[in-house]
Design a protein around this nucleic acid. Structure first.
Lengths: 166, 166
DNA sequence: AGCCGTTGGCTGACTCAGCAACTATAGTCG
DNA sequence: CGACTATAGTTGCTGAGTCAGCCAACGGCT
């Protein structure tokens, strides 16, 4: 009885992780809504803005987010309709197309970012001492690298997308 | 030029957090699927199994998960149909109803749990030194408590944070 | 050149979650 | 007691995401 797997410390650990994440995500989501963005849309804008040429192929975008490729198709549809980004043909491969952030998209991003950064400070980084934060980041990096879901696709990690970095 | 907000360290920190979380969640999800469970269903089973009387009111279940009450209604519908839990009338308040885990639900849980625990070890706790893990948990607890989305509702018989992650 | 397996992206059918509206019960105040 | 408000849960509708299946384009091969 005392060996009940429901009391395993790993569940507590993971529970903490999930609750912290869910709490943060919820705070962010309400701020995004104030600027008419969903969390995925924000993430797409961020990824595009930080990519070389401020654009990314659809598949790479899918690999960098938690979305499937068809999910990306639909998000990009909506965001293109709203003018936040636009599709561009890939000159070297006519199957591929890029999603490129527009000026409107960049503008929207710069509206949201300051508040977003402040929220991160308020609820995450600011809650921890510098040492604790540094330790936490090391640990997160270790876990992320282990679990590594191709978090950086399309950013020239491997040489297989030569001209995208135009 | 002025400091680009896209390079702010907080984004890196939060990005690490999100990627680590997404990676873990994805690993778990595939294991859950092997046992015909979705992540939410697993969480519901866990919450019920750990609650007094192995049951929880619908509202409390909603408060403990990221679901809305209508979301809970539907998950419970599906799971009741599959025999993993059953609804029970609340004797003292005829508006309320309990969701109570069934033997089949407990059995399913004990099928999934060992593998789940192993995954947590493999990809999360086992990636870190004991000291790093302890520090990480302290930090997570700090963030969770700050962001505290009423993570423990319905277990509120006692003063504070009874079982879920104290 | 032509064939063929692979890859990139899009579409249709479906599932799932949320909001808002609704029903029914509880509690409160006159 | 009866009206009024608040709370628990369910339901109609809609948006978002997945999977399976599709077509077009690429690249290796002979």
């Amino acid at each position: 009885m005392t060996e009940n797997p429901l009391d395993d410390f790993r569940l507590t650990a993971m529970g903490l992780f999930m609750e912290a994440y869910a709490g943060l995500a919820a705070r962010f989501a309400t701020q995004f809504e104030e600027h008419d963005l969903s969390p995925v849309e924000f993430e797409v804008l961020m990824r595009l803005a930080r990519s070389p040429g401020q654009q990314l192929r659809m598949t790479d975008l899918a690999a960098q987010t938690t979305l499937s490729t068809s999910g990306v198709t639909r998000v990009v549809d909506r965001m293109e309709r709203d003018g936040l980004l636009c599709r561009r043909a890939c000159p070297s491969d006519r199957r591929s197309s890029y999603a490129a952030i527009t000026d409107a998209g960049l503008a929207r991003l710069s509206e949201v970012l300051p508040g977003h950064l402040e929220l991160i400070r308020q609820w995450f980084t600011g809650q921890l001492s510098p040492e604790a934060l540094a330790g936490m980041l090391d640990s997160l990096r270790a876990v992320r690298d282990a679990v590594h879901p191709g978090a950086t696709a399309g950013t020239a990690e491997r040489g297989h997308c030569p001209d995208s970095a135009a």
